[in-house]
């Protein structure tokens, strides 16, 4: 499965990417703004888009709305990274059929839980012992 991580903060992108890597997913692409992410999404499908809600050019919410209103990509799985302070935006996102949202800051466990809701489970990677450890927590990974 491949992922698209959209955030204007490179630290956040790296973090989310790191967590996905930990789960055993290596195919992670990044974009630093909603508009960039939208274009990437138009190019090819992603298993999941994880986007921050606050971005300077195109916010995560606009990105979501654009995605949902573009027929070719309207069914893309979309998760928003939000903050406590953006409840209204989250509600708006839910209206636009966001598949999930996660509050910053989140732990790896919370992240795992959220992805599990979307049917995304960690995959085993043989040469990474720590993934085994994580995997045991989130259900035994199939080898």
């Amino acid at each position: 499965m491949n992922f698209l991580v959209v955030d204007d903060q490179s630290t956040m992108r790296s973090l989310v990417k790191g967590m996905l890597n930990k789960m055993g997913y290596k195919d992670v692409e990044e974009a630093d703004d909603g508009s960039v992410g939208l274009n990437m999404l138009k190019q090819k499908p992603y298993g999941l888009v994880i986007s921050d809600i606050h971005m300077t050019q195109m916010s995560g919410l606009e990105f979501l709305k654009e995605t949902r209103s573009t027929s070719a990509i309207k069914d893309a799985k979309f998760m928003l990274v939000t903050t406590e302070s953006s409840k209204a935006a989250v509600l708006e996102a839910i209206k636009y059929k966001v598949n999930g949202y996660i509050l910053k800051p989140f732990t790896f466990e919370a992240f795992l839980e959220k992805l599990k809701l979307l049917g995304i489970e960690p995959v085993a990677v043989a040469d990474k012992p720590e993934v085994q450890a994580w995997g045991s927590e989130a259900g035994t990974p199939s080898s």
């Binding site: 903060q9 630290t11 956040m12 973090l15 903050t83 302070s85 910053k104 800051p105």
Partner: peptide
């Protein structure tokens, strides 16, 4: 907020 978030 983003400082708080990422420091977490």
């Amino acid at each position: 907020h983003s400082i708080k978030g990422s420091s977490g």
